[in-house]
Design a protein around this nucleic acid. Structure first.
Lengths: 121, 121
DNA sequence: TCCGTCCTCAACTAAGTGGTTGAGTAAGAC
DNA sequence: GTCTTACTCAACCACTTAGTTGAGGACGGA
């Protein structure tokens, strides 16, 4: 896994179990045992998943006696959303420019019967 | 890598080279060779990266003589953004409820020394 | 027809992932 | 003290990933 922050966050969310953990943590903090209960995998496996989320900064673990309550740090989702929105928007703008060009082209064609001069494609 | 769509998309974006490819493709379609040029890795490696993006549905490849122009399918970013926004919002709502509880608690403390008679506000 | 360009496929390697089990640690309960 | 709970750490496994090199296919140009 590459070491940059955005990559770590994307990678952390590229697993259904970890996304489910994040989803459940929006309800409230929970201990490792509570979190692990619903899954058909060992507690250790879930602890590892939490480790991945922790390295990505998505989650922090407090100490409370033997418990280790897990807390969601939802702010770090923001840069990810931002990246996605930036490029989705950029792509959309490009389509709109393209549509405009096509519209102009078909106007030209409609206006005269001479075939388009600059026929690309 | 798990086989569900959302996981594939997150995983595809969890690599800086692939994110850069997506970013550059918002400018416009490009051939594999053009895309590979700036990177310090083989053409084959870039072709593999494009394969990953293609499996995630983020990209399609046309045939045009020997060229294989790559096209970005930006719509598939939407479900990812949606997932992120859903849970970011859910977490935020929880914080606001928590803040409200805390505010009420400190109001009660500040307002009188007799314990709260009823919910103020 | 042969040649060069553009690209994919196949095989391999090193490193990382997601799971397992077993052992160990820290802290409250008795 | 001893026991139990809640968890982490370490070693191991099968599998995937990101890169490499080498070979080859498809197509346009001379």
């Amino acid at each position: 896994m590459p070491t940059d922050q955005l990559s770590r966050t994307f990678a952390a969310l590229a697993d259904p179990t970890r996304r489910d953990l994040v989803a459940r943590l929006t309800i409230g903090d929970a201990t490792v045992g509570d979190l692990a209960a619903p899954y058909a995998m060992s507690l250790q496996a879930v602890s590892k998943h939490l480790g991945v989320l922790e390295k990505a900064g998505l989650v922090t673990r407090r100490k409370q006696a033997q418990r280790r309550p897990v807390h969601l740090e939802a702010e770090v989702l923001a840069p990810v959303t931002e990246w996605l929105e930036t490029y989705r928007r950029r792509a959309e703008e490009r389509y709109q420019r393209l549509d405009a060009v096509l519209a102009e082209l078909s106007d030209t064609q409609a206006g005269s019967d001479t075939p388009a001069t600059g026929g690309t494609r």
